[in-house]
Design a protein around this nucleic acid. Structure first.
Length: 378
DNA sequence: CATTATCAAATGACGCCTGA
DNA sequence: TCAGGCGTCATTTGATAATG
């Protein structure tokens, strides 16, 4: 029982196991958009009346079975329910559940995001009109070489500890972000006595909009900041692109989504080639307070998002933004805030870098552990 | 040149069938 | 009767053409 064995997947774990939930009952619902590619965590849920869909419990793994969600790696681990609570979700999930005494639920999750499993599943897709789906029955019959339970647990432990650390850093960054914004509001919005005057946003910041990247060449490497990265507050991916003539952001430039549903969303801390739907604000040379400016824009984020222009596609209203009034204080006070916010910002950037490193490490280890190329010392 | 409208592709979910 | 398969419809998205 201590050796890896070839076994049929259906002998190793349950597919769409029977999980009763009556129609008409209100339960937690997880839609496809709540899964992020290669992210263990489910991004929230809503309460809804059950009328159909997949059903699952804590410890189950959800795998998207439809193109392109499967190819993109939408796979998640259910951990937000109470014991024995049943939730439901998209009809396009395959629910994987551990078999008592045979498999470990967390191992199943990591197995499900391994290329070994995913490539097999993708091979088994069929259907017309571009809506291809995995043939679940065929997948069940596939044979894999899998470790015994104690080793599964050890492998899952290694990978989970990395994911736990990533989660922790992500949460910490959220706290740091909230803290900076709270201080900004307290100092410059609530406590308005020491205000000297208002300044127009256009007087302190310059604007440029990103462009579509040109021909890709190997020698010049730059991060490419796209709308999606700002939306998900994700790390920047590296692209090969030719930067001349492009808009290049540094870490202290303020970026805003200009087109589409997320128009108005603000972020800072991304350096790279700015994509065509991203705008960049940079403080003018006589106003050296990017943190102050960022927190100011952030405090207006909702207002900007609620007041977009355009009918078919919403756009962040540049005119509106330029006319925003910035409460202006003594330089010393702004400088003091700037210094404070910079400390928080640097910590956040540091965390981001750590998240990137840990993610890379996890992605390198995962296939080696799942295939048995590297063995965990037992 | 900046802004707005249009376009095509990508994506998600509904809900009709079918077979057990 | 009901769960799940599967095609179709609706919405969102990024890019580009059209417009002032």
């Amino acid at each position: 029982m201590t050796e890896w064995r070839e076994q049929k997947l259906s002998d190793f774990m349950d597919f769409n196991p029977y999980t009763p939930l009556s129609k008409g009952i209100i339960a937690k619902k997880v839609t496809m958009e709540k899964l992020i590619p290669f992210n263990r965590k489910i991004q929230g849920y809503e309460d809804a009346v059950f009328s159909g869909g997949t059903k699952f419990k804590n410890g189950d793994t959800l795998v998207a079975r439809i193109t392109p969600c499967l190819e993109n790696g939408k796979t998640a681990y259910v951990d937000f329910l109470n014991d024995e609570e049943v939730a439901f979700g998209s009809t396009e999930f395959i629910v994987l559940r551990a078999k008592e005494g045979i498999s470990d639920s967390r191992f199943i999750f990591y197995f499900a995001i391994s290329d070994e499993f995913r490539d097999t599943a993708i091979q088994l897709m069929s259907g017309t009109s571009g809506r291809q789906r995995v043939d679940t029955e065929a997948l069940k019959r596939k044979v894999f070489t899998l470790p015994p339970l104690p080793e599964q647990k050890a492998i899952a432990e290694v990978l989970s500890s990395l994911d736990d650390k990533i989660d922790l850093l992500t949460r910490q960054n959220k706290t740091l972000e909230d803290l900076a914004q709270a201080y900004f509001r307290k100092w410059f919005i609530e406590d308005i006595h020491n205000k000297i005057c208002y300044k127009r946003f256009a007087d302190v910041a310059e604007f440029s909009k990103g462009k579509k990247p040109r021909e890709i060449i190997e020698e010049q490497r730059k991060g490419y900041v796209r709308q999606i990265l700002i939306d998900t507050f994700d790390t920047d991916k590296e692209y090969y692109t030719r930067p001349e003539g492009m808009i290049i952001s540094t870490e202290t430039d303020i970026l805003m989504v200009m087109d589409g549903a997320s128009s108005g969303r603000v972020e800072i801390g991304f350096s790279g080639v700015v994509g065509s739907t991203i705008g960049m604000f940079r403080p003018k040379s006589d106003f050296k307070y990017p943190m102050f400016l960022y927190e100011f824009l952030k405090s207006n984020e909702e207002f900007i998002m609620d007041n977009t222009t355009g009918s078919a596609i919403p756009h962040a209203d540049k005119k509106l933004i330029f006319e925003l009034e910035i409460p202006y204080f003594q330089e010393e006070k702004i400088q003091e805030f700037e210094n404070f916010a910079l400390v928080l910002f640097n910590k956040r950037q540091n965390n981001r870098r750590q998240i990137r490193t840990l993610t890379k490490l996890r992605d390198t280890l995962l296939p080696k552990l799942i295939s048995g190329e590297i063995r965990v010392k037992m």
